[in-house]
């Protein structure tokens, strides 16, 4: 499988609140609450770091999970969020969008 790159859309609003990342699409107001693993992927989605590297260096180090399982879950997660337009996914590195950076509480 080719490498995948993920980037937070600029058309979202997000905040870390009570340990959970709250994300709202600015285009259709869809609202998401991300769990800890999803939040880790979300925060690392800078458009330049390959998804596999995010999984091995961020997810697997922070949580006790096998790389294969974690990558499968990550693929499923980014497919869901990209379907709502709040994550951009490409097989090439993506340019960072300044307005898409998450705001920490």
């Amino acid at each position: 499988m080719s490498e995948r790159y993920v980037l937070r859309s600029s058309a979202i609003a997000s905040r870390l609140l009570g340990g959970e990342m709250m994300v709202m699409s600015a285009t259709d107001s869809t609202f998401f609450t991300l769990n800890e693993v999803a939040t880790t992927i979300w925060q690392a989605a800078d458009g330049h770091t390959p998804l596999s590297e995010i999984v091995t260096k961020s997810v697997c180090r922070a949580f006790e999970v096998e790389p294969e399982t974690a990558l499968q879950d990550a693929q499923s997660f980014i497919d869901k969020l990209s379907g709502h337009g709040i994550l951009l996914v490409s097989d090439q590195p993506l340019e960072l969008q300044p307005a898409g950076s998450p705001e920490a509480a």
């Binding site: 058309a11 609003a13 905040r15 609140l17 709250m22 709202m24 699409s25 600015a26 285009t27 107001s29």
Partner: peptide, 15 residues
Amino acid sequence: AEDPDLVKVIFRSAW
């Protein structure tokens, strides 16, 4: 309003 910038403003206000 279906205005992305205002949606962000509302989200921030709510937070």
